[in-house]
Design a protein around this nucleic acid. Structure first.
Lengths: 253, 253
DNA sequence: ACCTGAACACCGTTCAAGT
DNA sequence: ACCTGAACACCGTTCAAGT
């Protein structure tokens, strides 16, 4: 008994019936799925529901097709992820950049950070390193160029770029921690067990949790920090860390 | 923290069947598995074969038991990971630290980075944020303390710590990219398809791959970098990025 | 109390077959 | 050429039962 025998009858047909130019006579069955359609739908899933909910079966269902039909257009899930990556990189805004190299630097870095903030799932994909988002390469080029224009050698520019990249990637990855599912306002009823009880409505904050755990030990700075770590963290930003890096990496004005 | 909140409400006492006379009379079957044993074995798997090979079934097999036996000692896989984390944090070296706060800072940061280098799998676990390795908390404390001793306010110290942490986490996460399986010297026979051909024996390097992909575009700095990016990268290090951050974050001497 | 085996609801992917 | 369904080799976890 196939569990999914019932189809969602009227789904999205007529969507990709763009004109066939009639030039090339195709043989065989006309395609009902296209790479672009697959990537667009996969992107919507990833954007709306997070990268971890993207499975081949889930995608197929959204396409009104089967998991294996997707494999006819895409080699495997890795390639699919790479295609989604390209899809978002392509549409990234590329505003005019300031002349001053130092301002250009911080502008591009913030563009990069914001792009990741909108698509945090790309960072783990990028960090795996076997993938290059061609359409976002201009950012790397601009950063390197601006660093050189600030007076660094090419070697120093690469090093500074590495540091900036690690910092950016690390921050995006660490910000993508909370699942934030549907249980926001409603208690799920699960016992907290060894987990620290949330201070109020929010999830346990790192310094608070740390201090609570290290009850016995003598960690004055941690304790002091835990007191108002939320406020202090609210005043931290990507720009602050970036300023530190640039002030240390660039020749002083 | 309740942790053992579900105490024995059914305190039936003093029935004597198979007396374990001497000390505490245990009832029921004597345990053949212990939490410590489970954690130690799990750590060995993770250390020797990588975090992604750790599955409950694999662990049970290494223990000569079944997957479900493990669940009697450990709530779920998340708790298991946290226990392994504690296990390695506990054995971290804690050498005497230099008096000078600035030297202390770089020393502790390098200790942290090296610890992660030996156990890169912990960074994704830590980045999920719902876990605190109590036994490694002294590093956070030392970093905060040293930053304050360098003249920062507590707020500034926290910010600098955030930047250092993001940088460190990012670098460890990005270094953990290559699977490095068994196909090192032998061609697997798979077609490279759209993937860039390795330059020599090694995996395609980021700038090389990037330039190869962006064939048409005009990216002079990237091209220039690709020429000898391997050598330049070899001269980059954690210390270099850290120095930039600290020079920008600390008051100038 | 501690452990077992079967089973559930998934996953990515291969394969042989249908149109 | 394009799509389908069944099947393989996995996952984490629940459940009822054994000792």
């Amino acid at each position: 008994m196939p569990a999914h025998a019932k189809r969602n009858g009227t789904q999205q047909e007529a969507r990709a019936l763009t004109e066939k130019p009639a030039s090339r006579p195709r043989r065989g069955r006309p395609p009902r799925l296209s790479r672009d359609q697959i990537v667009a739908t996969a992107y919507e899933i990833v954007r709306d529901e997070g990268a971890e909910t993207l499975t081949m079966r889930r995608l197929a269902q959204a396409l009104g097709s089967t998991a294996m039909a997707v494999y006819h257009h895409v080699r495997d899930k890795d390639e699919l992820l790479m295609l989604i990556l390209e899809h978002v990189a392509k549409d990234l805004p590329r505003p005019p950049l300031p002349e001053d190299p130092r301002q250009r630097l911080t502008t591009v870095c913030h563009l990069m950070f914001d792009a990741f903030g909108d698509n945090p799932w790309v960072v783990p994909v990028l960090a795996r390193g076997n993938v290059v988002g061609v359409s976002a390469l201009w950012m790397t080029e601009e950063i390197l160029g601006a660093l050189v224009d600030c007076g660094l050698t090419h070697e120093e520019a690469f090093w500074a770029h590495q540091t900036i990249w690690y910092y950016t990637a690390g921050q995006v990855l660490c910000m993508t921690q909370e699942p934030g599912g549907e249980g926001t306002a409603e208690d799920t009823g699960r016992a907290p067990a060894h987990q620290v009880e949330p201070h109020d409505g929010k999830a346990p904050h790192y310094p608070e949790a740390a201090v609570a755990k290290a009850a016995g030990a003598d960690f004055p700075h941690l304790v002091r920090l835990a007191a108002d770590s939320r406020d202090i963290e609210a005043r931290y930003s990507y720009g602050r860390g970036l300023r530190h890096i640039l002030e240390g990496a660039l020749p002083s004005v």
